[in-house]
């Protein structure tokens, strides 16, 4: 075994030890990049971006709200792809990725809902509107909660991995249908009269900070995901070592 050349490329990364060393090498750089991007983005959005002519200063909620929405959907994509990895290649690292991404995605979805409702109060005069977008975000949040709850309810780790992977894929198939049906529902019940995001398309002075913040949030998600994966791999190792110790103690 020891004299065999380690496989290179992506399949080499599938080895947890090599993955851990990569994470350790990348983390400081990624952390620095995240701080720089979000710091610059916050500077841009607070001091450079002009207040909107209609919304005033509250438009700045957008710089947290919209990137969080991107991440909340991106995280579900990561989970669904990892679920494919679990079910097709049965690789433990894919399950680590899926498990680590679920709480992060749920948190970003929660941030979207909270910031959206705080933005909604001054703009629409109410904290919650059953708008199609808000509703589908809320359902995405419920799907995340379901994933986390199912994982916690199953004790056997292999079964938990497969079951959550199946649920993630079922959710991924359903999400477009849910999105479509919620759009239909909203247009049927309430024409777009309460509020419209349209009107002026977003001005470049607001768009630049938004994209910087978006890049910063992507870096933040990657960083959190890698750190959570590292913590999960290490805790699984500790668990395995504990079981070996228990077996030794029982044998002695």
């Amino acid at each position: 075994m020891s004299n065999r050349k380690p496989p290179g490329g992506l399949s080499g990364l599938a080895n947890p030890t090599r993955f851990l060393s990569l994470v350790n090498a990348v983390t400081p750089w990624l952390a620095g990049l995240t701080v720089l991007l979000i710091g610059y983005g916050l500077y841009l959005s607070f001091f450079q971006a002009p207040p909107d002519y209609q919304q005033g200063q509250t438009v700045k909620i957008m710089f947290i709200h919209v990137p969080s929405a991107w991440i909340s959907m991106f995280a579900y994509t990561v989970i669904a792809l990892s679920a494919l990895g679990v079910l097709i290649w049965r690789h433990p690292l894919a399950d680590v990725s899926a498990k680590a991404a679920a709480p992060i995605g749920a948190t970003f979805t929660f941030i979207v809902l909270v910031t959206g409702s705080l933005w909604g109060k001054p703009m629409w005069g109410t904290y919650w509107v059953w708008d199609a977008r808000l509703t589908s975000m809320l359902i995405l949040f419920l799907l995340y909660l379901g994933l986390i709850a199912l994982r916690q309810a199953i004790e056997d780790p292999v079964r938990a991995a497969r079951a959550t992977a199946i649920l993630a894929l079922v959710g991924a198939v359903n999400l477009p249908i849910i999105k479509f049906s919620v759009d239909w529902w909203n247009t049927l019940h309430q024409p777009a009269s309460v509020f419209r995001m349209g009107g002026p398309t977003i001005d470049p002075s607001l768009l630049t900070p938004l994209f910087v913040m978006g890049a910063g949030f992507f870096a933040l998600f990657t960083l959190l995901h890698l750190l959570a994966m590292r913590a999960e791999i290490l805790s699984r190792r500790v668990h395995a070592l504990q079981q070996i110790a228990v077996q030794r103690a029982a044998a002695a």
Partner: peptide
Amino acid sequence: VLIALLVLPLYVPVLIFGVS
């Protein structure tokens, strides 16, 4: 209880089109 949490979000399209 867990079934309810897992399945009810999937029922959204059925509910919407059934009622509408």
